[in-house]
Design a protein around this nucleic acid. Structure first.
Lengths: 342, 342
DNA sequence: TCGAGCCGTGAGAGCGCTTTCACACTGACT
DNA sequence: AGTCAGTGTGAAAGCGCTCTCACGGCTCGA
C-alpha cells in the first residue's frame, strides 16, 4: 500500500474518541470493554463520540496487549484440492462457521497438505494469529497435534485420534453403532457375500468403521467381509470396488466408509454390469447432499454434522477461556438413512 | 486464558533474539525483513539465534506498525447454510485458498447473511484484520461493496457487479457465450418449446445467463423462451420447474442458470413423469462435481473456477500492493460439457 | 469532626515490532 | 591531509490499545 493510501484510510483512534467525548483514553477503553465502573454520563458521551466518528478499535493493538486475537483456525489436513471439496469437510466448515456466529470469534480456514504447509501453519499459529486450532481429518502420523500441544496452543480434534493425546479434546461419532446398523441391514436383507471399502488405516474414521463392521458381523455369526482400502476420494472408491469385484466376483453387498467413495464404487459396479441394489447393495457413510441425487439414491449412515461442529466450537472456546482441555463428550449417535442403493 | 497459561505460552521476542545474537533489535528486524544493509556476520548470528530460540515474529505487533495483516477475507454473501455448501462457492473457496499458497497471505472465510452479519463484517475489516476483501456472490442491493470502497479497503468481486462500481475490480465469465452454446444445442437437437430457469434478478450471474440465452435465441430466429426464476438453490429450481411445466406443459428443453437448480429441476421433471432427455432436455451451468453422478448425468456449461480464483487473488494482491484497482481482465471463456441430460 | 472505605477517573507504562535519524567508520577523491 | 559519499549500526520514537496504580471526591460509622 502506498503511504498516501494508508494515510487516507487511517481510522480514528481511541485517543480521538477520548478527545471528542472529553474524557481520558482509559475511560474510553473501559466503555469499549464494558467495564461496570463508568459513570452513566461519561458512558453516553463516549458512546456518542464512537457513533459520530465511526470508531472501530484496532485489533492488532488490542491483540498486542491482551495476547488474544478472537479468531480461531480451522485446519483441514488433506491434500489441497481434496479438502473442502469433500462435501463432508465443507459441511463441517460451514457448520463451524455458523456455530461461531454471535460468539465474537472469527474463523480462519487453512488447508495443510504437506510438511511445508504444516510448518507454515505452525508459524502462523505461533505468530499469535489465532487463539486456538480446530483440526479436521487428522492422520495418525500427523505431527501437528503434538506440535500444537507442546506449544500450549488450545487444540481440538474433529475426530478421536488413533494415538491418545493427553490434553487434546475431540468430538467422536458412534462409528461402531453405524457399522452395526449396516451389518444388520445386509444380513436381514439376505445378503451373504459381504464386502467393505474401508478408509485409510491411519485415520480413526477409517479404522473405526471397518472394525465396527467386522465386529458387528462376527456378533451376528456372519463370516468376515472382504476388505479393500481407499483414501476417502471418489477415485479411490472406484478403484477399490474394482479390486473387490476381482477378489470376490460373487459379492452382493458393500459397505463403503464414506459417501464419496460410495459414488466411485457405484460407478465401478455399473461399469462391471452389476445392478444396484439388485445384484449388489451399496451403503455409504456421512450422508452428504450428493447421495440424494445419485442413481440409485444412496443409502447411508447419517452423521450429525451440525452437532459435531457445535460441540467442537464450544469445546474450543471453553478451552481458550479456561486454559483447560474440555472433557470429551460421549460419541454422537449415527442414523441409518434408507434410500435405494442398499 | 488464565494468566499462567498465557505466561507459559509466551514466545521469545525480537529483543531476546537481539540479546542472544549480540546485536541491536533494529538489526534483528532488518534481518527478518531481509533488508540488504546487514553485515554478513551479523546476519548469520541473528539467523542462528532465531533458529535456536524458535523465534517467530509477533504479527499483532508488526501489524500495529505496518498497518498490514497479510491476510485477506473471502466473503460469501449468501444465507449461512447455503454458502459454502453450494458446490460452486465451495470450489471457489478452495481454489482461492490454493492460489494464496506461497504468497505469504492467509484466507479468512466469512459468511455474511443478513445486515447484522454485514455490519459485523464491516467492523471486522475496518478493525484492520484483513488487508482486502474478495466478495463472492454479490447481489445488486448489497451495500457492502460500496461501504468497503468508501472505506478505501481494497476490494475485488467474484463477478461483474450489476451497477458499475468505480475502483472495484472483478472477474467476469462469458455467460453470453455459454448461453449461446446452449441455445444452439437445443435448436440443433430439434427442440422447439424452450424454457429457462433463471437466477435471481439482482445478481449478474442470473441476469447475464438469462439475457445471453434470450439474445442467442433471437439471433437464431427462435421464439423467446418461457422463463421462471429461482434463487440458485436446489429447492428453488424444483419449484421453478413446476411453475414452468404448469405454464407450458409441452416444453421440451430447459436451460437452468446453475447446476444446483438443475438438480431440483430434474427431480421435478421426474416427479411429473417426464423422461430426461427424451421428453425434456436439461442443461445446467457451473459444472460442479455432483452433475457427473446424477441420473442422467448433467449436461452443463463449465466455468474455469480455478482460473477465476487465481485471477481474483492476483488482482487482490496487486491492489493491496499498489493501492490501485487492477484493470478488469477479459471475461473468462466457458465450455459446453456434453453429458446425458440434454 | 475525622479517618476509613469506596468509586470513578486519569496518568502512564508497556505489549513487540518497524523505522527514522544520527553516528561512527570506511575508502576514494581532491 | 581533508572532504565526501557510502555503509552498517544502534537509540529511540512511536503504532493503538489495555491495565495497573494513585488520587480526588464521596459517603458513612465512630
Amino acid at each position: 500500500m502506498t503511504s498516501s493510501a494508508r494515510a487516507a484510510r487511517r481510522q480514528p483512534t481511541l485517543a480521538t474518541v477520548a478527545a471528542v467525548a472529553g474524557v481520558s483514553p482509559a475511560t474510553v477503553s473501559r466503555v469499549i470493554n464494558s467495564s461496570p465502573s463508568v459513570n452513566a454520563d461519561n458512558r453516553e458521551a463516549v458512546e456518542n463520540a464512537i457513533e459520530r466518528l465511526g470508531y472501530v478499535p484496532n485489533r492488532a493493538a488490542r491483540s498486542l496487549v491482551t495476547q488474544r486475537t478472537d479468531s480461531i483456525a480451522l485446519v483441514v489436513r488433506e491434500p489441497v484440492g481434496f479438502g473442502i471439496v469433500d462435501p463432508y469437510l465443507s459441511s463441517m466448515t460451514v457448520a463451524a462457521s455458523q456455530s461461531l456466529v454471535g460468539s465474537g470469534m472469527h474463523l480462519v480456514v487453512m488447508m495443510a497438505e504437506n510438511g511445508e504447509d504444516q510448518a507454515e501453519l505452525a508459524r502462523y499459529v505461533r505468530a499469535g494469529h489465532v487463539d486456538g486450532v480446530m483440526l479436521l481429518s487428522v492422520h495418525d502420523d500427523d505431527p501437528l497435534p503434538q506440535q500444537l500441544l507442546r506449544a500450549k496452543i488450545p487444540t481440538v480434534l474433529g475426530a478421536r485420534p488413533m494415538t491418545p493425546l493427553a490434553g487434546c479434546s475431540y468430538v467422536d461419532v458412534d462409528s461402531h453403532g453405524g457399522a452395526q446398523m449396516v451389518a444388520r441391514r445386509f444380513v436381514t436383507a439376505g445378503r451373504t457375500r459381504l464386502s467393505t471399502i474401508a478408509g485409510p488405516r491411519d485415520m480413526m474414521a477409517g479404522v473405526d468403521r471397518l472394525n465396527g463392521f467386522r465386529t458387528a458381523l462376527s456378533e451376528l455369526g456372519e463370516p468376515p467381509p472382504v476388505v479393500a482400502y481407499g483414501s476417502f476420494t471418489r477415485e479411490s472408491g472406484q478403484e477399490a470396488m474394482r479390486v473387490l469385484l476381482q477378489r470376490d466376483p460373487s459379492l452382493d453387498a458393500v459397505f463403503v466408509a464414506n459417501d464419496m467413495m460410495a459414488l466411485g464404487a457405484m460407478s465401478a459396479l455399473k461399469a462391471a454390469g452389476r445392478r444396484i441394489p439388485d445384484d449388489v447393495a451399496v451403503v455409504g457413510f456421512d450422508d452428504v447432499e450428493v447421495g440424494r441425487h445419485t442413481d440409485p439414491a444412496l443409502t447411508t449412515i447419517h452423521q450429525p454434522i451440525a452437532e459435531q461442529a457445535r460441540l467442537l466450537v464450544e469445546m474450543m472456546i471453553g478451552q481458550i477461556r479456561t486454559g483447560q482441555a474440555a472433557p470429551n463428550p460421549a460419541p454422537l449417535p449415527t442414523l441409518l438413512v434408507e434410500r435405494q442403493s442398499g
